[in-house]
Design a protein around this nucleic acid. Structure first.
Length: 471
RNA sequence: GCUCCUAUCGUCUAGAGGCCUAGGACGGAGCCCUCUCAAGGCUUAAACCCGGGUUCGAAUCCCGGUAGGAGCGCCA
């Protein structure tokens, strides 16, 4: 039984690296029939916002990464943290420190000047036979963890392997601020302990925190969980992901036209592999995910590959499922999905030529809204005098069609071209420009069928008029 | 500065000492197919960071460089 958690701090949107960490946590829990929970680390009241909380929920919901429990907020657990601090103080595994911020800043500056690693020097740490200074008047102390002085902490990381830290390198970190608010490293430990987290899966920027957390857990008399530190995701240029690279928040990927499952698939393959397999259903991800095949090195986000994966999903996903997102995108560009053909058949026709839903929405706009003029180049090439003659005759032929179906249109248009000794392209291209506005669309029979008789005929006639007016 | 991490085609990766003449995928190039755009099919270029060991044998193990990254808060 595995219990994992995703524990973001609500200081911004759900970014792509966080989403991958959440995914790995989710998959690992599900793989062993365990539980996955979402915990909001909002102890920093200054920087935490409700908007960020909402953005995280929105991103998680869109990706379908559901928590098995109600979300937990650290700010609601202050009583519990205070209780544990009290216990530790009583047990002597924590102590009060009266050093001021200025004092500490100065200490660190001096250490840096001496080219030492800046760390707390233990001036208020009680030791056998040591005489502590008298607590200064009116100063509220912080609480520090009494980290062991000697020995080592051995972290057996599921991804990075064994990492050994000397306790000498670790200082006595603050677990409760002067105002009594507990700090991150402490809350995490208490929470993971209380919630029975068996596997802590998080970004590798936390590796250096881990030995301290393990020491606290040991001081509390409990066994530390397993740890898996996931490397970060880099931008295409190898630098840290930033606004410059375009996409950070999961929501932005939705806006770019990604299917949630596709983004998940791209993300799971970024740093993890299962032989040569590229595409995984969610069920396969759950069944196959393991830390043995998670790479310890950082990976770059490759937009091209992400688009490819998305395209594969558009092609294989049930159109009814795609329709939900497609609908969202059409509305987003001001197109009313009700004012035209059903979405599913349009998706079936468009999906092999669209890598994103944005592209699909734009290329399908003509089905639902009036033409906004013709593409200049395409019109110049295909809406010529000869083209107009063809379109005029064709309109008459189509008007007489007893049945408006793709096969009937296929026979009609092909027959029309053959009857004039023309290749299909000679006829299809002018039709395209006339009804689509440009020379790109699904096969002409399907295009006309989906567009419908009335719109088709009206647009063919409008194109003829356009040519006549031009001359 | 100190501690820790990382290193295979441009990118994501396979690789657990001989199966490696280093495989797959994206992207690139070329060809085929074709009513447009695509999709599809075939072909192709492209990598083990460097130097030492260990071993009969190293992309794989060890050490040292180099290069990237993370951390060193009364932030998370």
């Amino acid at each position: 039984m595995a219990v994992t958690r995703f524990a973001p701090s609500p200081t911004g949107y759900l970014h792509i690296g966080g989403a991958r960490t959440a995914l790995f946590s989710y998959l690992y829990a599900k793989r062993f029939g365990g539980k996955f929970l979402l915990r909001i680390e909002d102890t920093d009241r200054e920087r935490s916002t409700q908007e960020a909380v909402d953005a995280i929920f929105e991103g998680m919901a869109w990706l379908g990464l559901k928590s098995d429990f109600a979300e937990i907020y650290q700010t609601q657990r202050f009583d519990r943290y205070a209780e544990v601090v009290k216990q530790m103080l009583a047990a002597g595994t924590a102590y009060h420190c009266y050093a001021s911020k200025e004092e500490l800043d100065q200490m660190r500056a001096e250490q840096m000047a001496r080219k030492e690693k800046p760390r707390y020097d233990g001036r208020w740490r009680p030791e056998e036979g040591k005489v502590l200074p008298a607590p200064p008047e009116g100063v509220r102390p912080v609480v520090r963890f009494r980290n062991p002085l000697d020995g080592q902490v051995v972290l057996k990381d599921l991804i990075k392997g064994e990492i050994v830290f000397d306790n000498k390198e670790l200082d006595d970190l603050i677990i409760a601020r002067a105002d009594g608010v507990p700090t991150y490293n402490f809350c995490v430990v208490v929470d993971d302990w209380d919630m029975g987290i068996t596997h802590v899966i998080r970004g590798d920027d936390h590796v250096n925190n881990t030995p301290r957390q393990i020491n606290i857990l040991k001081a509390l008399g409990t066994t530390p969980p397993e740890y898996a530190h996931v490397s970060m995701i880099l931008g295409a240029d190898g630098a840290k992901l930033s606004k410059r690279h375009g996409a950070l928040s999961v929501t932005e990927y939705r806006a770019m036209g990604f299917m949630p499952e596709a983004l998940l698939n791209y993300l799971v393959r970024l740093g993890w592999s299962h032989g040569d397999q590229e595409l995984f259903t969610r069920q396969e991800m759950i069944e196959k995910f393991d830390f043995d095949h998670v790479s310890a090195s950082p990976a770059r986000f490759d937009m091209e590959k992400a688009y490819w994966v998305n395209h594969q999903y558009l092609k294989i996903t049930d159109p009814a499922v795609v329709a939900t997102e497609f609908d969202w995108h059409l509305r987003r560009i001001g197109v009313d999905p009700a004012n035209g053909p059903a979405l599913e058949p349009v998706i079936e026709q468009q999906r092999e030529r669209c890598r994103t839903l944005v592209e699909m929405a734009e290329k399908s706009r003509f089905f639902y809204a009036d033409l906004d003029g013709y593409n200049e180049k395409d019109a110049a090439k295909h809406l010529t005098a000869e083209g107009a003659v063809l379109l005029d005759e064709l309109a008459a032929a189509l008007e007489a069609l007893p049945e408006w179906s793709a096969p009937a249109l296929h026979v009609a248009v092909n027959g029309f071209a053959a009857g004039r000794g023309l290749g299909l392209g000679k006829v299809a291209q002018p039709i395209r420009v006339a009804v689509v506005g440009m020379a790109i669309s699904p096969p002409i029979d399907q295009t006309l069928f989906l567009l419908g008789r009335d719109r088709t005929l009206a647009r063919l006639k409008a194109a003829v008029a356009y040519v006549q007016n031009k001359s």
